[in-house]
Design a binder for these strands. Structure first.
Length: 266
DNA sequence: ACTCGTGTTAGCTG
DNA sequence: TCAGCTAACACGAG
């Protein structure tokens, strides 16, 4: 599910877990918690509190404080493709109703913190692509896609020779653009996903920055990137909702990519 | 039955 | 240094 707008909603869930004393941490999943060993994260957080919830791009992290009141390690959380943060208590998780009558298998709860008041913060992820780690490397992330200023966007995205979409998906360039948001943004700007960035003009990049802001605003307003104008047309037989030309499909930056064969021609 | 994919990253190759 | 590719994770959708 999550791209930037969805992760911002998850951050708000996370904020509901702040300022409670940590009683117990379930960090048994050595894939989700890698490179830490089971018990490492629990030991680092035991008796402390989460004191602030932050997001940059699709990465979440909490500042923490130890039982002695001194600053503790940051707790990094990434939801991967299918992760959800949920609050719950001894009666079980609350939060998004599951579709259909799917039974939630216990092993899909990959990480959890139980607080002394009985509240729980739970990481639910069928696909196990989520990640929990202490002191994540935030310097490896570019500026947040929703906040990056035009000049910095142009300078960062325009650097190198990679195909434009590959550059947009690189979280160290700008943080928070996922596959769907990239296709939506490129379609809004009428730019080819495979065009090398060193061939773009300053105006192209300004246009792209505008398109990104517009696509993000719309996604936040309507509940997620899947509500984008082009998303429903990313399929075989789809047509561009602006000009009616067929949608083209290929792989760019290693990801499945759809674009208007006419308006976004190479 | 079978393929594809809203994400990341280590490790490798050119 | 840069860019592309693969594997790994494990499930739902079509």
């Amino acid at each position: 599910m999550p791209e930037l707008p969805e992760v911002e909603l998850a951050r708000q869930v996370l904020a509901g877990a702040l300022d409670r004393k940590i009683r117990e941490v379930d960090d048994h999943d050595d894939w989700v918690c890698r490179p830490h060993a089971p018990g490492d994260i629990a030991a680092a957080l035991a008796g402390g509190r989460l004191t602030a919830a932050h997001r940059r791009g699709k990465t979440l992290w909490c500042e923490t404080e130890g039982g002695d009141g001194r600053p503790g390690p940051n707790l990094g959380l990434h939801l991967g493709m299918a992760g959800q943060l949920r609050l719950g208590d001894e009666r079980g998780p609350r939060g998004p109703e599951q579709l259909g009558r799917r039974v939630e298998k216990p092993e899909w709860f990959r990480f959890g913190i139980t607080f002394t008041d009985g509240e729980q913060l739970l990481l639910f992820d069928t696909r196990r692509l989520s990640r929990v780690r202490l002191d994540p490397d935030l310097d490896a992330l570019g500026p947040d896609a929703g906040e990056v200023a035009r000049a910095e966007f142009r300078e960062r995205v325009g650097r190198g020779r990679a195909p434009l979409k590959a550059r947009l998906l690189d979280q160290s360039v700008v943080a928070g653009i996922g596959n769907l948001l990239a296709d939506e943004t490129l379609w809004q700007a009428a730019l080819s996903p495979s065009r090398p960035v060193d061939g773009l003009t300053g105006d192209d990049l300004t246009e792209l920055h505008q398109a990104l802001k517009k696509a993000l605003r719309a996604a936040i307003k309507h509940g997620g990137v899947h509500t984008g104008e082009i998303i429903g047309h990313r399929r075989a037989g789809g047509h561009c909702p602006r000009c009616g030309a067929e949608m083209a499909h290929g792989t760019v930056g290693g990801r499945s990519t759809w674009w208007c064969s006419k308006e976004q021609a190479g």
